[in-house]
């Protein structure tokens, strides 16, 4: 474990907590894409299949449980909670996320480190996570009003992956034959997708104005 990875995991945890706070306290999921949340629940399910078979550390297991539990809770809130679901604008959140899942699955079957079920699922989770934010970014373009919590949530979600890239650089430099091209490439694509959001988020912070993405 290194400081980059610990900070990254804490940033990721913070993003989930910000979102849960928004949904649980103000009982609203306005501006949040259910499609992205469902993709994240799938990402964690496919990535943590080894939660009962490979014990890495208490930290690792506890964090896996937290990410699984929170991602499914958020999907449950947005789908079934009688108050929260009212603030979900389904006619704006129309991204067909199945068109993201199929190519990622095919790619995972073609490019993976080992052709086993768990490994292909693990690989699929990385390819899928790289593009999981797309429905959310599309929704942001459509809904003009981006409230602070939503902006912070997306910022933290993007920052965690950028920090993971620092972790991967650090591990590549310090650990002999530590090479994992699949997470590296996926993580890079994922971080680049946040590029323009980071730019506008920084501008809104610098000029102290409300976050507005160009149409």
């Amino acid at each position: 474990m290194n400081i980059f990875r610990l900070t990254a995991d804490m940033t990721h945890l913070m993003s989930v907590i910000v979102l849960l706070l928004k949904i649980h306290t103000i009982k609203s999921c306005a501006g949040i894409s259910l499609k992205t949340q469902e993709l994240y629940a799938i990402v964690f399910t496919c990535r943590y299949l080894d939660i009962f078979t490979d014990f890495i550390s208490f930290y690792n297991t506890i964090m896996k449980v937290i990410f699984l539990w929170t991602s499914f809770s958020i999907v449950w809130y947005m789908r079934y909670h009688k108050i929260v679901r009212r603030s979900y604008d389904k006619d704006q959140d129309t991204f067909r996320h199945v068109f993201l899942m199929l190519p990622c699955l095919v790619l995972a079957l073609l490019i993976n480190e080992r052709f086993t079920f768990k490994e292909v699922m693990w690989t699929f989770s990385f390819y899928l996570e790289a593009v999981a934010i797309l429905p959310q970014l599309v929704l942001l373009q459509r809904t003009r009003n981006i409230d602070n919590l939503t902006g912070q949530y997306i910022f933290l979600l993007g920052a965690y992956r950028a920090l993971y890239i620092l972790n991967w650089i650090y591990r590549y430099v310090t650990e002999p034959n530590y090479v994992h091209w699949i997470p590296w490439m996926s993580g890079l694509v994922q971080t680049l997708l946040y590029g323009d959001f980071f730019y506008y988020y920084f501008l809104s912070w610098k000029n102290n104005v409300k976050l507005q993405l160009p149409a």
Partner: peptide, 10 residues
């Protein structure tokens, strides 16, 4: 187990 077989990151 050798590091490569298990993925130790979240």
């Amino acid at each position: 187990e050798e590091a490569t077989s298990t993925h130790d990151e979240l």
